[in-house]
Design a protein around this nucleic acid. Structure first.
Lengths: 275, 275
DNA sequence: TGCCATCATTGATCCCGATCAAAGACGGTC
DNA sequence: GACCGTCTTTGATCGGGATCAATGATGGCA
């Protein structure tokens, strides 16, 4: 097994180069970017060590991750006298049952912007074994500055992230628990299988708690909604993570979205949706 | 009234040039950007006509605006048999009590990204008389592509917007009504007066309904929270919009944030705050 | 000045989701 | 296999915010 197969590091860098369009600018941009990028590998449950002073851009090569925020709520409470059970020395104080919030889940090919710690406590945590490439944002931009195509691509990605974030905000703003869960499942079907209608089966890489934290719900509520959707025949589950959606369109309807028609929403100017 | 004083259009373009750092790239970038920008003036309550196919970047020169999303929720309920009272012809079907959501408020100097309508129903609505400059995002980027400083500045702004959006998401995710209102007021104090502690007085450009829509609360709840904060001596109001915060730090505490110490924001080589 | 549409406040009640509590199921490891 | 920690499900109860309903305040305008 020596080093015959492609090393994770080399593979990750290659994935990065493949994911970003380098256009017809300076041809060495890719190499120069890789030179300032740093490969890292995390195991399930590990978190990317925080950087106090530098914003970072993180490219996900393999695995899935969650971006969490530890809200600085003056929660005067809950110091859990962690059981002396010296479990894996690895699990760094994953403060249970505090106001942790999952901002987003990320999958291979994503470029995640992780702000410096001074701007809030954002952390990237591995949900599965994770290969990634980290860049100091300033360095990345310095290099990319010579190559407008790259810069523009990054901008475009960040605008997309903004869009997703806003969409999610709307979810949290005024959707019921049922709608949030349905929406979440539809979203996962799309990102994990590329399915937007029909049926679909996949394995959720995150726990019920993670799901709840990302939707602003408690774990019990998440569970109850799964149960109800199961009774409604829209969802089947097997084990902890395997999920089968029997009718994605119906689920999307449940989520309060247009039932995933043919995308070209040829609405005449201003017909109120009112499904 | 002739054209003796500076026209709003000229003033807006000048404001735009002043707001974006053009660095030492090609010196005509500013002019070329202005050439593809289009000046618009909206009156209170008007909305920026939607563009079906093009994402846009909008620079706010004067006034305040809200970015709203009309959620396509399949609200099976609430058919309000709008009273035949042919009210003012002006109020363009501003569907009362529907799931409108305010994504953000914007002030002079902001650059707002307004996605094409196909990506969701986002609209920019004037809260006061509003002068702005709109760009087709693609055109803007084409021009800016020659000037890395501009491109990078726009990127930086969008990352900031993302950060704000995420922060807000956390708010909506798990904060009480009290905390949301307190947080909102602290944020307004900062944006409208630059105050982060001590006391402060300003005029809110938006209605209680707008506030509620932006925080995921109902108007009655907003009102009740104002009343409670008033009783607690943290807030004084006069008329509909005038607000006085007697102790911003205390209010920040109420919001569940660190009580606004001297922000040790040790900014590393980064880009100006703004927005 | 008085009218009137809109906005804001206050009260009463209801309901969804949080919280408290206790089993039950999964999936590791020995 | 049996054990055990973690994750998940289900039940009972509570409370914050939504909802329904009515009154009061504001400010634009003729």
């Amino acid at each position: 097994m020596a080093s015959i197969s492609l090393s994770p590091e080399v593979a990750s860098m290659a994935a990065f180069k493949a994911a970003v369009p380098f256009g017809n600018g300076p041809q060495d941009t890719a190499e120069r970017l890789c030179a300032v990028g740093r490969f890292r590998s995390l195991e399930r449950g590990d978190e990317l060590p925080a950087d106090r002073y530098e914003d970072r851009l993180v490219f996900i090569a393999t695995g899935t991750a969650k971006l969490v925020a530890q809200s600085t709520t003056a929660s005067a409470s809950t110091r859990k006298p962690i059981k002396p059970n010296g479990s894996s020395a690895r699990s760094i104080d994953r403060d249970i049952s505090t106001n942790t919030h999952v901002l987003a889940f990320h999958f291979p090919g994503d470029i995640v912007s992780v702000l410096r710690q001074a701007d809030g406590d954002f952390r990237l945590v591995a949900l599965s074994n994770l290969d990634l490439v980290t860049f100091q944002a300033a360095q990345f931009l310095d290099v990319a500055q010579d190559n407008p195509v790259v810069l523009r691509s990054v901008l475009s990605r960040s605008l997309q992230a903004l869009h997703r974030s806003r969409t999610k905000m709307m979810q949290l703003g005024h959707k019921s628990a049922r709608q949030r869960i349905a929406d979440f499942l539809v979203g996962m079907a799309k990102r994990l299988c590329g399915c937007t209608c029909g049926e679909c089966e996949f394995s959720l890489p995150m726990t019920r708690r993670d799901i709840g934290d990302s939707l602003g719900l408690k774990i019990e509520t998440v569970s109850r909604q799964f149960s109800e959707l199961r009774e409604a025949g829209l969802v089947e589950t097997q084990g902890r993570s395997l999920v089968r959606l029997t009718d994605i369109s119906a689920l999307a309807g449940e989520a309060g979205n247009a039932p995933a028609q043919s995308p070209p929403r040829t609405r005449s100017p201003k017909i109120p949706p009112q499904t």
